[in-house]
Nucleic acid binder design. Sequence first.
DNA 1: CTGAAAGCGCTTACAG
DNA 2: CTGAAAGCGCTTACAG
Lengths: 345, 345
Amino acid sequence: MTRRPRIRDVAELAGVAPSTVSVVLNDTEGARVAGSTRDRVRAAAAELGYVPNSLARGLRTQRSGTLAFISDVIATTPYAGQLIQGAQDAAWEAGYLLMLVNTGGDKTLEEHAVRALRQQQVDGALYATMYHRSVTLPRVLDGLPTVLLDSRPAEGATTFVVPDEQQGAQSAVEELVRHGHRRIGFVRDLHDGPAVDRRLRGYEETLTAHGLEVDPGLVVRERSDSAGGDRAAGVLLDSERPPSAIFAFNDQMAIGVYRAAAARGVRIPQDLSVIGFDDLYVVSSELTPGLTTMALPHREMGRLAALALIAERDGAEPAGEMLVPCPVVRRGSVGPASPAAATPH
Amino acid sequence: MTRRPRIRDVAELAGVAPSTVSVVLNDTEGARVAGSTRDRVRAAAAELGYVPNSLARGLRTQRSGTLAFISDVIATTPYAGQLIQGAQDAAWEAGYLLMLVNTGGDKTLEEHAVRALRQQQVDGALYATMYHRSVTLPRVLDGLPTVLLDSRPAEGATTFVVPDEQQGAQSAVEELVRHGHRRIGFVRDLHDGPAVDRRLRGYEETLTAHGLEVDPGLVVRERSDSAGGDRAAGVLLDSERPPSAIFAFNDQMAIGVYRAAAARGVRIPQDLSVIGFDDLYVVSSELTPGLTTMALPHREMGRLAALALIAERDGAEPAGEMLVPCPVVRRGSVGPASPAAATPH
DNA sequence: CTGAAAGCGCTTACAG
DNA sequence: CTGAAAGCGCTTACAG
């Protein structure tokens, strides 16, 4: 393998100075180069297969053309890929490449990693978390343009991109109301957090907006896994006045709702409508009937975050909170409310 | 934010030349520097929070300290994370950072991306695919140390890291034989490929090794999704002499096996044992009973690939084929063979 | 044991 | 319209 050509090789072949090659290949503003010279330079570069060395360029311009993608354990979840994909696509279009680091939530590793990333002169950082939560940025990130992905800053005014949880919950409930449901249960996570808080608010406000009663007895707290969903739905289905529809905090809990229904001979969607959240596709598409659920717009979030980061790096004002809408994905778990709804048989 | 310190700043503070700082901080071989000088340099570096600029270093040393991770659509599958995580961990330990590019299988994009990556002077490339298959490396990669991840080279002697499919199938069948099964069905993918070919061979050879009949009627070809698994298992369960156990090509097909069994009143594992492949955890752990399956060692594969790549970059001979064992993950779908096995009731 | 010089491969004022 | 020079921040022979 022969050595890669340098700018000087192109200059010699074209019979010009290296600086002229640089100016031509970069289309430098305000530099006047004769058309014939341009052509000669371009031809020479093409002939040699010249590709500029980004390290040398970065050293000179103080821009590396790379962005850090730092995440806790995100890359190991099924969603992560979309977040990365979206960020990468937007970065790519703007001429940036992503340097990836997964910290596994280890703060010491995180600090070392950020140091290594800064050493590589990344132009900015995307800081992503596994699910929507509140975080404190590590100090090593100080001074580097940073955008949070799927989390919000516990302090400070860092730009952040998160799903519009409240709108998602609102759309979910409206989907049910539209099908005639009037008593709608909500099986929620045990713990509070940005996601559950906003989904709960969206649920309550939408009920109110439609003149429906907000019955605390219809909201059951449980662990946010399928077993928890099973138990929570059990409480609802076994109550005096069972709901005709259940909105599950997430798809894992929705699996449990299916189980609770099956155990009681309650059919979905004939006797009970179910709507989930997250669109964990391996789950939602494999259930019978398929689960109607709110999708988390990970790809779009990744795109927007990268775009915002690049803009800030280029001097734009921090964008602050960026909410990305969650679209409904209709499968088969929502049907019309029937008078006999949720009555065990 | 004040400008980051350069090596000259450290040198001035320590009262030495920049070259001495470099030698001390890099622990350069064969360079004799007085202990007291070393201490002064280290103290000065620490005081200023000095971090060398990798771009400048890379320009000089012709090593960027970065590795490319190129994949088709891998980052969007649940497995991808582990592959990346393993590669990243190993790279990190060796002082490398990963630059990620997802091509989505687009060859034009791939070519541009590789060019950009080479422009960034990556020291080597990991080329990963979504599932075990045969690939032809793009020419733009010529001359760059490369290791294939989860795929094998259609031509050439590129080092590649893949799961040991045959051993996996062997372990799966032995797990069933150990439980007394003698008639074991195999529901396989419609198409041939490195994975299915080797799993089939492992299945057949293990049966033979145990003196069991290899009945072509026990191998059913279908689409490798749950619907396909459902149909294939149906054929097996409805046959004259149904098997007491089914080995599914992958977990998606295993879901279908569960469905076919349920539809016929065949209980798992009492009447029928099932073992899958892939350990698609969202699936395998949510089924009832939990699915016993062969895990794809993605994390380990990522580790080994990165290690092999770095070794080659450092002058080692290409390692060729690297097989990584697939461990069995026991849940609840394998039980003892019973005489009444798989008899519908 | 330590320092001065050259050079990695670019880009950017600055001359002409 | 084009070229010569300086410099980005390091490391590496080479002197001394």
